[in-house]
């Protein structure tokens, strides 16, 4: 894992605008990435995108991240495994996470909640605007 983190730090994808909160969006559907990024940027956040779990974990532990929007069914490293490893990391263990997924009602949901996610949102039940409202609760 140390190597992964090293590699990620070398290619810092974020041109950070100072003073803005950073949201790490871990999502593999390109359409949804487009929509959420657009909406979040309109709302004044810096958005960091990871399209798979491994990349997401690397960013989460190597970058300054204020909140993570986490899809669960993602390539390379599932959202659940990502949470497990994130919570073991010194830097990543306190980052607020909102699960944003289309999985619902299953045992997985219970498991994910047990890792201390702030909220568990079923994507199709929320518009991007509503997602932002939830984010604002945790990032005043």
């Amino acid at each position: 894992m140390a190597d992964d983190i090293q590699a990620a730090s070398e290619t810092n994808p974020l041109v950070s605008e100072p003073g803005k909160k950073v949201i790490l969006l871990i999502e593999d559907d390109p359409f949804l990435v487009g929509i959420y990024r657009e909406k979040l940027e309109i709302e004044g956040y810096n958005v960091l995108i990871a399209e798979d779990g491994l990349q997401g974990l690397n960013y989460a532990v190597s970058q300054k991240v204020d909140l993570i929007l986490l899809d669960i069914l993602i390539p390379k490293l599932s959202g659940i495994d990502l949470l497990v490893r994130l919570r073991q990391d010194e830097k990543g263990k306190d980052v607020p996470v909102i699960a944003l997924t289309n999985l619902s009602g299953s045992d997985d949901e219970e498991k994910i909640r047990s890792y201390g996610v702030k909220d568990y949102l079923v994507k199709s039940n929320y518009t991007p605007g509503q997602v932002v409202e939830v984010i604002k609760k945790y990032l005043p």
Partner: peptide
């Protein structure tokens, strides 16, 4: 997933 995308575009 596609429903989320449609909802997202339209709502925005």
């Amino acid at each position: 997933s596609p429903l989320t995308a449609i909802k997202g575009y339209v709502s925005m």
